[in-house]
């Protein structure tokens, strides 16, 4: 097991090197001017200096490997370039937007995990009966429905028609409360900050704006998790220890919850970790539909305006997140399942 974890950790620099190299290779497809825009340290530089000076200044005429290591050095110093669309440092605007996305993903993840596992259990226990078929059809429809269609229809019904759940992140009055100096931004996640500041009205306003994006972002993962839990439960219900538990006269609910489900949850736990990542990456479309100002909307705006430094910065962020979450999931898997002794 220690061997497995050590090996997993040793792979980390390999993947980090490869992933940055891949991004750097993509950057070579940009025109010289576009490429320079990912290096400059302030907007004035682009406006006043000419291309040749900038190419010289940032050593863009150096050999490939030198430029690569320069670039990685830049990243490690937190310099991801200047973003024209947000009129700010790339690293800074990513950091400013990230709490909004994290808030959205957390609110989406908790009902997803609980609901998906619950529905999956129901389906497995009622194998090939009514509720199994209902959840199966729900799951198939779930992953056939594009998030942007779901989001648009949600807005048509619950915003335009009923007026319950508006797009955006906060109403205007609540935004003014949040940016006022008396409001402390502890986490950047408005619903939590509002509670910490004792502003229940802002808290409910934030929740009201979260309902639509949260449902849109997570219904696909409900469907996926439901199916994974279901097949894992079916496997586990066939095991001898479940038969033993039944034979010794335990109540059915105890057999299912304590004996079958605990073991079935081991593969499910890893999926939940990976799905949290899926939620974080899925925000591009959801945030665009709901005009929710997080990393996803930032990605959309940057891509639409061909803001290369920003797009590349976000790509680095996601690669880092993915590698990190995968590592945590793998090690967690080895820790909770003693049968894993991979080498």
């Amino acid at each position: 097991m220690t061997h497995y974890i050590v090996r997993r950790l040793l792979l980390l620099p390999v993947v980090a090197f490869g992933a940055t190299l891949l991004i750097f290779i993509f950057m070579q497809f940009l025109s010289p001017y576009q490429l320079v825009s990912t290096y400059v340290r302030s907007p004035e530089e682009l406006r006043h200096a000419d291309l040749d000076t900038l190419v010289k200044k940032y050593h863009l005429d150096a050999p490939f490997y030198e430029r690569y290591f320069d670039w990685v050095g830049n990243i490690l110093h937190g310099n991801l370039g200047w973003s024209a669309t947000s009129n700010d440092w790339v690293a800074h605007s990513i950091a400013a937007r990230f709490p909004a996305t994290l808030e959205l993903a957390i609110y989406a993840a908790i009902p997803m995990a609980l609901g998906g596992i619950w529905l999956g259990t129901v389906a497995a226990v009622n194998h090939n009966r009514f509720w199994d078929h209902v959840t199966r059809i729900f799951a198939i429809i779930g992953w056939s429905l594009p998030t942007f269609v779901f989001g648009l229809v949600f807005l048509m019904v619950f915003y335009v028609w009923l007026g319950w759940f508006p797009p955006g992140r906060l109403s205007t009055w609540a935004t003014q409360v949040v940016i006022s100096p008396s409001f402390h931004a502890y986490t950047g996640m408005y619903s939590i900050d509002a509670l910490l500041n004792g502003r229940l009205d802002v808290f409910f306003n934030a929740l009201q704006h979260l309902v639509g994006p949260v449902i849109t972002l997570s219904y696909l993962y409900w469907a996926l998790l439901l199916r994974i839990t279901r097949s894992s439960m079916l496997e586990s219900l066939r095991q001898d220890y479940v038969r033993t538990a039944r034979a010794k006269g335990l109540e059915e609910s105890v057999v299912i919850k304590k004996h079958a489900r605990r073991n079935a949850l081991i593969p499910v736990a890893t999926s939940v970790g990976l799905m949290f990542l899926g939620l974080l990456a899925g925000v591009i479309i959801t945030e665009t539909v709901f005009n929710y100002p997080g990393i996803g909307l930032l990605t959309y705006q940057a891509a639409a305006q061909l803001d290369y430094p920003m797009v590349l910065g976000i790509c680095l962020l996601y690669a880092g997140l993915l590698v990190l979450v995968n590592l945590v999931v793998d090690i967690g898997y080895a820790l909770i399942d003693p049968r894993v002794s991979l080498d």
């Binding site: 390999v14 974080l280 996601y318």
Partner: peptide
């Protein structure tokens, strides 16, 4: 390992980056 490297990017994010470029 090359496969791992390509897997280090979420599908949609990678697609957005490549089409932008």
């Amino acid at each position: 390992r090359v496969t791992d490297i390509f897997l280090a990017f979420p599908y949609l994010v990678a697609a957005v980056v490549v089409t932008t470029i």
